[in-house]
Each structure stands twice: as structure tokens, then as C-alpha cells.
Write a protein that binds this DNA or RNA. Sequence first.
RNA 1: GUCCCCAUCGUCUAGCCUGGUCCAGGACACCGGACUUUCACUUCGGCAACAGGGGUUCAAAUCCCCUUGGGGACGCCA
Length: 470
Amino acid sequence: MIITRFAPSPTGHLHIGGARTALFNWLLARGQGGQFVLRVEDTDAQRSKEEHTQAILAAMSWLGLDWDGEPVYQSARFELHRQHIQKLLADGRAYWCHCRPEDIEAKRQEALKAGGKPRYDGHCRELGLGPAPGGVIRFKSPPTQTVSWPDLIKGPISVDSEELDDLVLLKSDGNPTYNLAVVVDDLTMGVTHIIRGDDHVNNTPRQILLYQALGANLPQFGHVPMILGQDKARLSKRHGATSVMAYKEMGYLPQALNNYLARLGWSHGDQEIFSLQEMVELFSLKRVGKSASVFNPEKLNWLNAHYIKQTSTEELGRLVWPYLAAQNLTCPNPGYLAQAMATVRERGKTLVELAEKAAFYFQALPPLNPKDALKLLTSTGLAYLAEVGQELRRAFPQTHEALDELLKNLASAHNVKMGQIAQPLRLALTGQTASPGLFDILNILGPERVNQRVQAALAFKPNQAEADRA
RNA sequence: GUCCCCAUCGUCUAGCCUGGUCCAGGACACCGGACUUUCACUUCGGCAACAGGGGUUCAAAUCCCCUUGGGGACGCCA
């Protein structure tokens, strides 16, 4: 059985790149009936925060990426890590190093200046030193050999061990380093497939050497390409929102984000739309591309719009309501909300947009857009509106055709286009010139609200407004 | 600087492994048309790419090499 893992460090929120890595691991495990485990890489006590862990778990849950068992905290396994370090020490595969950080840094700078790679020079390697305050334990890299592995995504990769220096395994504070902890944990947790970000490619040969020194079999490695911003630089805050929860707040659906993230790098022929279940069935690392990809919010919008259209009006109501409630709006009843959603569902790309477009249904009197009011509620516009209001009071249209006829009759009576009649009414009812279909609005608002809004708009004083503007 | 990786429309990608069916397909975005009382939706059509140069071959987007470009890594961070 395969075991995959997602191993975030709780030093921040779950970002887009991490979410995709998590998704790929999850898809791989679920697709093959394996396990997907979560490991919190909190070896850095300074930067790790429990609140970040909780935020990451919340984001995972929102995306629907469930993990098997309880999350494993790396910090709870330090003893295990130290045992493995002791073993390496005993086997002569590691040694104590007393070099001062400043000296090492100086040597790095020198090496860099000389055009070389800034790596540790192995000063303490053969000194046979013992424990000392401020000392660290380093891995004794084996002599020249080529380290290579068949990367599940990138294909064969090989590195000359000459390039690798003696990395620190135990820090001077007595805690293990990332590279040691990862290897020990993946090993002891039985992880079979390590799917992680591209930025770890350089760690892999070091870790392979550690596996070998520990006498362990190698897991499979796969490195997923980075996600870039529009300028092709690594995706970061300056490109806009990067955290998964920020997308939730902006009104994106988890299905949309999952679908988008999956298609960013992975493909299955020409198919664009995938449910999570479908992805589970179809996902394969072989179909993941090797090159980095640019994050494209437009396409995410398109997918989000697609999934919004797929969502029932009742469900949409539940999802959109928080945004409406935040504006202190009230809702007559759940049915009203669902009806409103039905009319805006195809007009917005995010839940936030839906809330904006549906707000007028819930406002006591939607504020008239000043520019549009000035343009439409002229003396003739108001005259038309008064007439429409009268007609509506006399016979409130029960069908789309009835409204159509009402508007048509008025238009031809005054020898104007339908828009001349319809737009002032639209403005009166919604405060805007762009809105759902008039009949739907009429039908949902009902005669009473419609009459209120028309009367309120009729009170608009074009001349006064002109004066105010001047 | 050194090492590793990558390279098809503006973007995500199919095709590349197993050369010919590709004057390169799909999607997003963009531009037109249709629909229409607004805005959308939908629909029809359009624009748009094999980074450059050498090979190999009857034939290369597909294989090889170089150049260029991009990304990543080089921590007692993860």
C-alpha cells in the first residue's frame, strides 16, 4: 500500500502552492487506496505557531482533503531523531563539529568570491571531536559518487556527491535539523511516495545519502514544479492573494480551487472540468508536467463561475448569505433568498459578486446610482416611470409575457424603444442599470415592494440633483 | 558564481517517450457576430505558439548537441 504525506511547516498559512502539493499527494493516495498522512514540520521552535497549524488544517478541511490518522508533530519525535543521529555517530557516518558559525560564514563568502560553491570545508571531519557546548553534529558525506533517482515527475536526476557538503544533523540547541527529521520521519512513518515542491530537488540527494547511511530502502520521489506569478517570478504576496483561506473569503468554491490547482500542471487530454472524485480516478503523476506554471486568476474565475452555476440555489443562498448579512441586510425567508440566487447565479464569478448583485433584493430601498439616476430619471423618464407604476398597480404581471406586453404597449404609445421604459423601472427597483431580468425581479419583490420602490424613485428631483452636482 | 531543473498560442495545456496522420488540437483571456428591455448566460466565428542555431533522418514540435532565456538550490529555515 502506498503512503503519501503532506508536510507543511506551521510558519504561515496554507498557500496556493502548498495546497496543490497537498492535493497531488491526496489524489495519489486516494486513487490507489493508500494513505495520506499529515505531518507538521515544526522543528523551528521560533517560527512555528500552533495557530498556523490550526489554520492549515482548516484550509485542508475546506478543500476537502482529509488525512488519515492524527496529524504528526515533528517536534514530538525529537527523541527518535536523536536516536538515529546517535546511530550515525556510532557508525562513523557523522561527527561533532565545533566550528563557529561566523567562521563558516566567512569561508562561504570566500568560496563564493572565488567562484565556487559556498559549502562547509569539512574542517572538523577527521578531528574525532566529542560533544561540546555550541557544537553540532554533521553528516559525513560519503566520498565521490553519483547520487541519482528516477523522479516520478521530472524523470532521472543525478547529482555528483562532490556538490554536497557535510550537512548539520543536530543543531547546537540539541534539536534535529529539517533534513534529518524528514528522513527519519518519512522512514519510520513508512512513507512510500514523497511528492513535494520543486524547491526540494536539491535536498533529495542529501536525503538519499542519509537513507543509505541509515541502511534504509529509498522511497519514491516526485517534485512538482513551482507556481509562478504573472511576471514569471515565484508566486508571492506581491502577486496578490496566495493563501487558500483568502480565496475562500473572496468567494471561491473549494471545487473550483481544487479543479484549477489540479489543472495547473496536470492534464487529462482536453478535459478541463473535474470533480474531486473524477480527479481521484484519473490522476497520475505521469500526467504532471515538468515545467513551472503561471497562476492565472482569470481561469480560476471561469471555473468558479462554472461551479457556481452547478450549485443549487438553496446552497448558494447559504454560501452567499454571510456576505449579505455582513451589510446588515435581512431576509424575509429562505425561499426569497434562493429565488434571488436563481436570478444572479449566472451573473457573478464569485460569491462576493453574487452578494453584490443580489443586495438590492434585501435593501429596504436600494440607493439609486447617482449617475444613472441623473441620466434616466429626467422629466420624461420620470413620466414614463409614473405610468409604468400605474400600470403595475392596476395589473401586476403574472407572466413574463404579460410584462413584455405592458412594456411594449407603453413604448409604442410613446413611440420610443422599450429600453426607454424599462431602464427607469430597472433603476427604480434595483438602483442600478444592470440587473437580472425585470420580470424575475418583479416576481420576487412582489407588488408591495415594487410600488414602494417606484414611488421612492418618483420622488427623485433631477433639477435638484443637477444643482447639487454643480 | 557553482550545481540542479525547465522551454508549444499572452496564460493553462494536448501532441514529444514509440519521428510522418500537426501548414500543431483544446481551454482561459481577448476581438467580432447572433440572442436581448439592461447586465450576464448561451452560441457561432476569429486572432494567436513549436525560443534560436547546428546536427541525425527520406522525414523533427517530436531524437542529439550548443546557445539563449526562465526557475530552483547553495543556512545550526523548512
